[in-house]
Simulated assay, not measured.
Amino acid sequence: MGTIKISNIRVYAYHGCLVEEGKIGSDYRIDLKVKANLKPSAKSDNLADTVDYVHLNRIVKEEMAIRTKLLETVAKLILDRILLEIPIVNEAKIKVSKLNPPIGGNVEMVSIIMNQKR
């Protein structure tokens, strides 16, 4: 078993419960970790035998582009797609952070963390 991490994926998206958030948008940070059997790819040196992190990044960007009210919802959609589209992934963990959230205070970010196993 091995782990692939992608840290600090930055996207601009329109998630949130407030109408203004859907119009103005906000900056987001996504950290992703997936677990898979990486021994075959270590032996073969073949991209087809591993988890392509370009594919992971594309899933994150595509799902973040679809507006949701809750960070939990978009995180679940990303996890579902990873497990659906990348069969060798056994487990995925995601942290979705909204930077400078509009919560009436000086807050750097709010984050949710979710994980899902096959």
Results as ranks from 00 to 15, higher is better:
Ala36Thr: 06
Glu63Ala: 13
Asp45Pro: 07
Asn37Lys: 12
Met1Phe: 04
Met114His: 12
Val51Ile: 14
Asn106Gln: 12
Glu21Leu: 09
Asn90Glu: 11
Lys93Ala: 01
Ile86Leu: 14
Gly105Gln: 03
Arg81Asp: 09
Leu83Ala: 00
Asp52Glu: 15
Ile78Arg: 01
Leu32Gly: 03
Arg118His: 01
Ile88Pro: 11
Tyr28Pro: 02
Glu20Pro: 01
Leu32Thr: 04
Val89Lys: 07
Leu99Asn: 06
Val96Lys: 00
Asp49Lys: 02
Lys61Val: 00
Pro101Tyr: 07
Arg10Ile: 01
Leu47Tyr: 12
Leu38Met: 10
Asn115Ile: 09
Pro40Cys: 08
Lys98Ile: 04
Lys69Thr: 15
Lys43Thr: 07
Glu108Tyr: 12
Ser111Thr: 10
Ile4Ser: 07
Thr73Met: 12
Ser26His: 14
Ser7His: 10
His15Ala: 02
Leu18Ala: 09
Ala36Gly: 10
Asn90Ser: 10
Lys95Cys: 06
Asn46Asp: 14
Lys76Met: 15
Lys23Cys: 14
Ile66Asn: 15
Asp80Met: 13
Lys76Asn: 15
Leu77Glu: 15
Val54Asp: 07
Leu83Asn: 00
Ser26Arg: 14
Ala42Val: 10
Ile6Arg: 06
Ile6Val: 07
Ile94Phe: 05
Ala13Gln: 01
Val74Asp: 06
Ser97Pro: 13
Gly104Leu: 04
Leu56Asn: 03
Val89Pro: 06
Lys5Phe: 01
Ile103Ala: 07
Leu83Val: 05
Thr73Phe: 08
Asn106His: 00
Arg10Asn: 07
Gly105Ile: 05
Gly22Trp: 12
Ser97Ala: 11
Lys43Ile: 10
Gln116Pro: 02
Leu71Ala: 12
Ala92Thr: 04
Thr3Glu: 08
Arg10Ala: 11
Asn90Asp: 06
Thr3Arg: 07
Val34Gly: 03
Leu77His: 15
Arg81Lys: 14
Met109Trp: 13
Arg118Met: 00
Lys93Pro: 04
Ala48Lys: 15
Ile103Val: 10
Gly22Ser: 06
Ile94Val: 04
Ala75Tyr: 05
Arg81Thr: 13
Asn115Ser: 08
Ala36Phe: 04
Val110Gly: 10
Ala92Glu: 04
Leu71Met: 14
Thr3Val: 14
Leu71Gly: 08
Glu20Lys: 09
Ile113Glu: 03
Met1Trp: 04
Lys43Leu: 11
Ala92Gln: 05
Arg81Ala: 07
Asn46Leu: 15
Ser97Trp: 02
Lys69Gln: 15
Leu79Lys: 02
Ala42Gln: 02
Asn106Ser: 07
Ile24Cys: 13
Ile94Ser: 00
Lys93His: 03
Asp52Met: 13
Asn37Val: 11
Ile78Leu: 09
Val11Leu: 09
Asp27Tyr: 00
Asn115Arg: 05
Lys95Gln: 11
Lys23Met: 09
Lys39Trp: 05
Ile4Gln: 00
Asn100Phe: 08
Lys76Glu: 15
Thr3Trp: 11
Val19Met: 08
Val60Phe: 05
Thr73Cys: 09
Asn115Trp: 06
Asn57Ala: 12
Leu99Lys: 00
Glu20Arg: 05
Lys33Glu: 11
Asn37Asp: 13
Ile86Gly: 12
Val34Ser: 02
Asp45Met: 06
Pro87Tyr: 08
Tyr28Gln: 03
